[in-house]
Simulated assay, not measured.
Amino acid sequence: MKKVLKILSGVLFVALLVGTFWFLWRKTRPVKILYAIVQPATDTLKQYVVATGKVQPRDEVEIKPQISGIISDVYKEAGETVRQGEVIATVKVVPEMGQLSSAESRVSVAEISLAQVRREYDRTAALHEKGIVSDEETEQSRTELAKAEEELRNAQENLEIVKEGIASRFAELSNTQIRSTIDGMILDVPIKVGNSVIQANTFNDGTTIATVADMSNMQFQGNVDETDVGKLHEGMPVQLTIGALQNVELDARLEYVAPKSTESNGVILFEVKAAVEIPEGVFVRAGYSANASVVIRSREGVLTLPEGCVEFEEGKTYVQVLTGPEDAEEQTFERREVKVGLSDGVNIEITEGVTADDKVRGARIDQK
């Protein structure tokens, strides 16, 4: 038993000694670094200025009442489409007691006056038939009767307006019916039946009955940094990316660059707007956040390399060109000066120094 233990101890000691020497030998070996090999490719490069903002309808209006009262009916909901002049809600007028009393009194006075004028006219007409009263006096009496009848109609219509908000003969023009002023989609109806509303006037904006917008005419509204605004001008093509719409890019065209800046958290920004083209079958909701990429420079069919392959040193640019076989145990490279052009932040244009057949050192991938 003791002999077996001695043998096992010896084997373990030898194995430990061999492992130690192997580890030290591995540590003293030179490190071999492997790099990915990249070949120049022909591609299209575009340089962008990015603006962040949201997509909004170009025409968005708030519908407000022209009379104060209480909402008696609501006929539309958010998301429904309406035509210009279509009724959205109805307002029930709550008459002011002073005005109501005055209107009723005016009707009573007009009725009394009409009765008196009618009696005078009947008397004059009877005397005229007997030849006692002249034609002129009869005509004047008839005119007074017509005036009294008109005054009564006006007083009755005024009473209707005080009570109902509109006279019966002008029912089609009733301002108690709140109508849409444009064609579009209802974005919001913030009122309910029973809510009190105030008419729009010089001193008050009035209660909003609904918000209506033309969803077929959308506009991107965003901001760009002051360092980029000088590169923009009206008419430039824009690509919109909307986070809520996966795999959908919308085309737009820049139509406004603000002449005056705004400041947000110490950053100077300039507002930009772009007309958005909505393709058929795509529904863009008002207020979607979006990123707008404005193409400021573009080069097609140029030789490119990943920007990480290029070394920048003292105003010059270099690449490491593979000089040996790609599958050789040890990679060898030649440092070569090149001239570069447009960069999109990922790839860079190579104008001189390498060809499409050259192989260039890329990122470090392994070491052994």
Rank of each mutant, 00 (worst) to 15 (best):
S168P: 12
I209W: 03
G235E: 04
N175H: 14
G206A: 02
E226I: 11
G222E: 06
N201W: 07
G235T: 07
I191R: 00
S196E: 05
I191W: 00
Q199Y: 00
V212H: 01
T227G: 12
F203N: 10
K192A: 03
D183G: 08
D183V: 11
L232M: 06
I198Y: 11
S168D: 12
A171M: 15
E234R: 09
K192W: 01
E234H: 03
V193L: 04
T241D: 08
F170L: 15
I161C: 12
A213W: 09
A167E: 14
T207H: 02
P237E: 04
G184H: 07
S180P: 11
V229Y: 13
V197P: 03
A244M: 03
N201F: 08
N204H: 12
G194N: 06
E160I: 03
K192P: 00
S180I: 09
D188A: 04
V189S: 01
L159K: 13
M218G: 08
K231N: 10
E226Q: 13
N217G: 00
V212F: 01
E234M: 03
A171F: 15
V197R: 03
G235V: 08
D225I: 11
I182G: 02
G194D: 04
V193Q: 10
L159E: 11
I198P: 02
Q219Y: 07
F203V: 07
Q219M: 14
F170M: 15
P237G: 05
L232K: 06
Q221V: 15
L240C: 08
D228S: 14
N195F: 01
L187I: 10
V238G: 02
R179E: 11
I242G: 07
Q177C: 13
S196V: 01
A171D: 15
K192H: 07
G206Q: 01
D188S: 10
H233I: 01
D188G: 01
G184L: 08
N175G: 08
L173Y: 15
I182T: 05
D228V: 13
K163P: 06
G230A: 12
V238W: 05
G194H: 05
E160W: 09
E160R: 05
D214Q: 10
S180V: 11
T211Y: 01
T176Q: 10
G243R: 10
A210D: 04
T207R: 03
T208M: 02
Q219I: 14
E226M: 10
H233M: 00
M215D: 04
Q239M: 09
N223R: 14
T181S: 12
D228P: 11
F220Q: 03
K163V: 13
Q177Y: 14
V238F: 05
V238E: 02
L159R: 14
D214G: 10
T207P: 06
D205A: 07
K231R: 13
I198A: 09
V189Q: 03
D188W: 00
I242T: 06
N201D: 13
M218K: 06
M218I: 11
K192S: 08
N158S: 15
E226S: 13
V238N: 02
N175W: 13
T176F: 09
D228N: 14
A213L: 10
Q199W: 00
S174R: 13
A244I: 06
L240S: 07
K192F: 04
R169W: 15
G235D: 05
S168W: 12
H233A: 04
V162S: 10
L232D: 02
L240W: 06
T176L: 09
T211S: 03
A210G: 05
G165Q: 13
A210E: 03
K163E: 11
Q199R: 01
